[in-house]
Amino acid sequence: MTADPLVLNPELERATSRLLATIASFSDPDLAEPTLCAGWTRGHMLSHLARNADAYVNLLTWARTGVRTPAYESPEARDEGIQAGAARPLAAQLADMAAASTRLATAIDAMPPEAWSVTVALPSGTPIPAARVVWSRICEVELHHVDLCAGYTPADWPDAFPLRLLHDPATPHAATLVDPDGTVLLTVENAPTVSGPVHALAAWLTGRGDGTALTGDLPNLEAWK
């Protein structure tokens, strides 16, 4: 499946719209509820997602201008930014997310074709071509939308997203994966075979599902991290 950022950008726009709709459904007290990320409330998660959009703007600026612009000044600055925005009221969180998403959309539109091949670095330090930024942002939005525990589940993911996720190098390739019709989705040598719906396979491999909808000898994913 293609990883072309200009092909994926409409998917990012739709994922962002779904996220913003979920945020708009919250009340101020809802933001204090826990998420699937240990120690983070919904407020922390939303603050992270907004700052992550700005981090990706930095990476695209780096690719476009040639001036090294890290996603975050430092890991400490990243954490401080999340904490600083976590306790804000809903109106501020929603406005911030919308504005940060618009900044990222503008940065994507401003990219000349040759800039997409420039190597930048994710916050983890992993070098990637700038073309991967759009896909990385889709992953942030779709996975953390589930983490909000607000009714959006892996079953709500668009069909193409979990398929791409299964083949992503960052996803643990711990088993040969088969869909319910018997179609082999991913082959891993000397690994057990696990079967189930595509979204359930992707949810299990990314820690958003416990594998109860799957069949087969599920390996311990901790060994694959």
Rank of each mutant, 00 (worst) to 15 (best):
M1P: 08
M1L: 13
M1K: 04
V7R: 01
N9A: 07
N9I: 00
T16N: 13
S17C: 02
R18E: 15
R18W: 05
L20P: 10
T22E: 03
I23G: 00
F26H: 08
S27H: 10
D28M: 08
P29W: 07
D30I: 10
A32Q: 15
L36S: 14
C37S: 09
G39T: 12
G39W: 12
H44E: 11
H44F: 15
H48I: 05
R51K: 05
R51M: 05
R51V: 03
N52Q: 01
D54E: 12
Y56K: 07
V57E: 01
N58D: 03
N58S: 13
N58W: 06
L59G: 14
L60F: 11
T61W: 01
T61K: 01
A63F: 00
R64M: 08
V67Y: 00
R68N: 02
T69W: 06
A71K: 05
A71Y: 02
P75C: 11
R78A: 14
I82Q: 02
Q83M: 07
A84K: 11
A84L: 13
G85N: 04
A87F: 09
A91L: 14
A91W: 03
A92N: 04
A92V: 11
A95V: 07
M97C: 12
M97W: 07
A98M: 06
S101Q: 07
S101R: 11
T102F: 00
T102G: 01
L104A: 08
A107C: 04
A107M: 03
P112S: 12
P113Q: 04
V118H: 11
V118G: 00
V118I: 15
V118N: 03
V120E: 07
V120K: 03
A121R: 14
A121K: 14
L122R: 08
P129L: 09
A130H: 01
A131N: 04
A131R: 13
V133P: 01
V133I: 15
W135Q: 02
R137A: 02
I138W: 00
C139F: 00
E140H: 13
V141G: 04
H145C: 02
D147A: 06
A150C: 08
G151A: 09
Y152L: 03
T153E: 14
A155W: 08
D156C: 15
W157D: 10
W157I: 14
P158M: 06
L163H: 10
L166W: 11
H167P: 04
D168G: 08
T171K: 03
A174C: 07
A175W: 12
A175V: 15
A175N: 02
P180H: 02
P180N: 06
D181P: 01
G182L: 09
T183A: 10
T183L: 07
T183N: 06
L185S: 06
T187E: 14
E189F: 03
N190P: 01
V194I: 06
G196R: 02
G196A: 09
P197I: 01
H199T: 15
H199L: 00
W204Y: 10
T206Q: 05
G207E: 03
A213P: 00
T215V: 09
T215L: 04
G216K: 11
D217I: 07
L218M: 07
L218P: 08
P219C: 11
A223C: 04
A223S: 10
W224I: 01
